[in-house]
Design a protein around this nucleic acid. Sequence first.
DNA 1: ATGACGATTTACT
DNA 2: GTAAATCGTCATA
Length: 200
Amino acid sequence: MPPSFYAQDTIHLAESLLGTRLVRILEDGTRLSGRIVETEAYLGVEDPAAHTFGGRRTERNEAMYGEAGHAYVYFIYGIYFCLNVVCQERDVPEAVLIRALEPVEGFSYFETHYPHTPPEKWLNGPGKLCRGMSIGRESNGVALFKPTSRLFIEDDISIRAADIATGARVGIDYAGDAVHWPLRFAIRGHRCLSPKKFDN
DNA sequence: ATGACGATTTACT
DNA sequence: GTAAATCGTCATA
């Protein structure tokens, strides 16, 4: 997708990313891809759930202060990585967390990597999709709008507004009222969504 | 230098 | 339903 795609406001981008395809080229040239089916918006300095709440700026979250269309990858719980798409102009630190993918390319790779696991469970969670797509520290700060990157986003299918489900974000109980903000988006009823259920 | 904790997942009871 | 796993990051000193 071109840089202009990422210039939308954060909530609209979180919805627009649904149905696009995340592509990962491995070191050996293997091409993996998955359709984005679930996202969450993080609204920067005014969002108690965001890593950049109140303007906090550290080595870890520096990528969130970059230009729209770059990746913000962070390490969490000593085990997992999570991938975000950075939004807004430079120094406005907002981002969209990619929470689940529907596998599109790389079935033989995934079958080897996840024996005895059905396809809808290969990439259905923010930590799992980074493990599955081999996204780690080296992807932090990558420009997703460049086809020359090893990680980028392509157009795929279009999703009707009526097919987008909205709900509260997951795993942010420390964030006070923001726990209830309707900033989680998904393709309604999709089989590859992360396990946590929507309230509505 | 130290301690508390996390935008998760998995395996239990 | 609850709890363990597991370690980089960050705030405090």
